[in-house]
Simulated scan of single mutants.
Amino acid sequence: MRFVVLGAGAVGSVLGARLSQAGHDVHLVGRPDHVEAIREHGLRVESPDGADVVRIPAVSEVAELEPLLDWADVDAVVLCVKSHDTAEALRGLARHADSAVPIVCAQNGVANEDMALRLFANVYGVLVACPTAYLEPGVVRAYSSPVAGVLDIGRYPHGRDAFSAQVSRVLSGAGYGSEVRADITAYKYGKLVTNLGNAVEALCGPSARGGNLDRLAMDEARTVLFSAGIHAAFAPTSALVQVRPVGGERRPGGSSWQSLYRQTGGIETDYLNGEIVRIGRLHGVPTPVNAELQRSANRLVAVGGAPGSVSELDLLRAVVDGR
């Protein structure tokens, strides 16, 4: 198959590399410094099993793909940008790609598919459970082995079709665990609940993951989703995703932690914790924990703060004071 991976960060770069190694035609669209490094040295993918250098076409703008491929031959665009960059990425894509091209949203959060559906007719959601890291241009790490991660797929908002089955087979052949989920939206809401700890980890450090603040945020989310009548399904991914050190080093932090570390100027918290806040406001359910995590994450981005520089106790106090 021929893929364009739009948003070649950690997840997108590893996915593009594994698809290319499996014999598929892949073009990456990423940040300029990352693209420059890939063009000069190849994409270095480090894993618990060693390192590969993959030569793969990469550009920094969708428009640069025009001389390299015919959009009529593209089987799918895999969208891997953070949710706060989705609207802009889709607008840029729509200037070049036909509205019929399938958009595969391999992203955290539940807002991306709906944004894609405004511009494209065939949209697919993907539940992403892929422990990866992108901390320097040209180099990404995949921490799960032998399976690179889980990428379950389904047509948005629900349903199975021949295309989702085909992509699932391709992903499985590229080293991922992948199933077709008829109710992919429910599974993405389940993943949303577990992703609420991303902000906790980014603010307070990896040791705070799974702690009191994380549990309070998830409990609050379950109450909100129940009140809204939204079903959240939880996929049993832990048996497949086996996180191991790479080069003797453990994964430093998740996607939100990495955004702060790399000083990207943005963070996806508005579409994770902020999604729970939004639904809570629609249904009259207070969300003080997730609202404070959202505010604090955005403040830390605004001042260029380092990940792990906020006290968990201070955040808990702010939640109590804000009630």
Rank of each mutant, 00 (worst) to 15 (best):
M1E: 01
G284I: 06
A97Y: 00
H41T: 07
G229A: 11
A291W: 05
T86A: 10
Y271D: 00
E312C: 11
M218F: 00
G190L: 01
V5M: 08
I38M: 01
H231E: 15
V29E: 06
A100V: 09
L315D: 02
A100C: 03
V320E: 14
H34T: 04
T269H: 11
A186E: 14
A174I: 09
G229K: 03
S255L: 03
A199M: 02
R250Q: 15
A297G: 14
F226H: 15
L28D: 01
T269Q: 02
L127G: 13
V14P: 08
G308D: 08
P206L: 12
V45W: 09
I153W: 01
R278T: 06
I184K: 04
L240D: 03
G149M: 01
R91V: 07
G109M: 05
G154K: 09
A217L: 10
C204V: 07
P48F: 11
G266K: 13
I267H: 05
H84I: 11
G305P: 07
V62G: 05
R215A: 14
Y124W: 05
R317A: 14
D49I: 04
V310E: 12
E201M: 05
P32W: 08
L293T: 10
C105V: 12
Y189L: 10
R2P: 01
P288V: 08
R317S: 09
L216H: 12
Y261I: 03
L119D: 00
R278Q: 12
L316P: 04
L90M: 09
Q21Y: 04
G253D: 06
Q166D: 07
L19V: 10
E46G: 06
R278H: 09
L293C: 07
E136V: 12
S20R: 14
A10P: 00
L65E: 12
F234Q: 14
A106H: 03
V78Y: 09
G280L: 06
I267Q: 00
L293M: 03
G109S: 09
E312I: 12
A22R: 02
A182G: 10
P102F: 05
H24W: 06
I153A: 10
R281E: 14
G211W: 00
V246A: 01
H231K: 15
Y176Q: 03
L15A: 01
L272P: 02
Y134R: 14
M218P: 08
R299M: 11
R141W: 13
G149V: 00
N108F: 00
S207N: 09
D114E: 15
P146D: 00
L260M: 10
D49T: 09
L79F: 03
G23Q: 07
A165P: 04
G247E: 08
S227R: 13
Y187N: 00
L93W: 09
D214C: 05
F226Q: 10
